[in-house]
């Protein structure tokens, strides 16, 4: 071959290599990934709504303040929030979680499926334990979104998962994977993370729930190797259906009920980040504490909670194993919800 041809071939190869790399990088930029995920979410949401077809009516017996009433609502379209709207703004503001038939927890913006009795719970209900757990779960969920927003792309952030909420452990938790070996955020970093989370909360996003099939979920989380590993387990446990939650543009997998909106989170502190795996894998546990709006706690008392949350939260740690990017084994988990 002539030198000229060789040169041009070489140029072609390097340029196509560069092109491939740029395309690769572009496809996997966080912003694009999030947009893609949201697009899929929106499409699926719309499809499910259109699928309802002929609107049927259900009888919802509302038990609570200001009076017990029977409401006629639309099946698979009306949400407990819509029921609250029939009463007053105060009822809507107060409602954070719904209780169906006295035993099943239901998200406020999740469509009702059949005739039932409805109770709207709030943070100061008679038995706020369920609401507290939902709140803690929501905080974990949102923490992932916040980390995705503020950590730069070159850190290689992947959200691993967040475990079952445990108030008594003293903090809510989100496990993430970075390609940084020893991440030791300074006090200033942690403070800015807390502020970011509070900012995110004040954007007043409604937390939406969507059940998707295994395939769509895989497509949505194709960039995240941890989720890819977890999804088969989750869908097997749940008859091939994966429940996703969305707040703003952050989407994550979770089983349990979340509170209705981010606006109820008022005070957040992220006191520590702990590295929870050794050697190759870089799993970090980000721990935080938060309080809902309407609860005033002195700085001293809140500080006590913060001090306690600085220590590693050992609840539901993912079992140590090698990083899935570099190995074929999937990390096993205990009660990852």
């Amino acid at each position: 071959m002539t030198v000229h041809l060789q040169n041009s071939l070489w140029k072609l190869r390097t340029s196509s290599n560069a092109l491939y790399k740029s395309v690769y990088r572009r496809c996997f930029s966080t912003q694009d990934v999030i947009e893609h995920r949201n697009r899929l979410f929106n499409n699926e949401q719309k499809r499910q709504k259109d699928n309802v077809g002929r609107i049927e009516k259900i009888e919802v017996r509302y038990l609570g303040l200001p009076s017990n009433e029977t409401l006629i609502m639309n099946k698979n379209l009306s949400t407990p929030f819509n029921c609250a709207q029939h009463f007053s703004e105060a009822v809507c503001e107060n409602a954070v979680l719904a209780l169906i038939n006295g035993k099943k927890l239901w998200d406020i913006h999740r469509p009702l499926e059949e005739s039932c009795t409805l109770q709207l719970l709030h943070f100061k209900s008679q038995d706020p334990n369920l609401v507290n757990q939902a709140f803690w779960r929501t905080c974990s969920f949102l923490l992932g979104g916040v980390l995705q927003r503020i950590l730069k792309e070159n850190t290689g952030l992947h959200l691993h998962s967040f475990p079952y909420p445990s108030l008594k452990s003293g903090s809510f938790v989100h496990d993430i994977s970075l390609n940084v070996d020893n991440w030791n955020p300074s006090a200033q970093d942690l403070k800015s993370m807390s502020i970011e989370m509070m900012k995110f909360a004040t954007e007043n996003h409604n937390i939406e729930r969507l059940e998707v099939s295994h395939e769509i979920a895989l497509e949505m989380f194709k960039d995240n190797p941890f989720k890819r590993e977890q999804l088969p387990n989750i869908s097997n446990q749940n008859k091939g259906v994966i429940t996703l939650y969305r707040a703003g543009d952050h989407i994550d997998i979770s089983k349990g009920p979340m509170i209705s909106s981010t606006k109820y989170i008022s005070k957040v502190k992220i006191p520590s980040v702990h590295k929870i795996t050794k050697e190759d894998s870089n799993l970090y546990r980000v721990q935080g504490i938060a309080l809902p709006s309407g609860f005033t706690l002195s700085a001293y008392a809140f500080d006590i909670l913060g001090q306690r949350a600085k220590r590693l939260n050992t609840m539901y740690l993912p079992v140590e194993s090698a990083d899935p990017i570099h190995s074929d084994e999937a990390p096993s988990m205990q009660q990852r919800i």
Binding site: L65, P66, S67, A90, V91, K124
Partner: peptide, 9 residues
């Protein structure tokens, strides 16, 4: 404010 016990203002 809204009364927690009866829902009235």
């Amino acid at each position: 404010k809204v009364c927690n016990a009866c829902g009235h203002y």
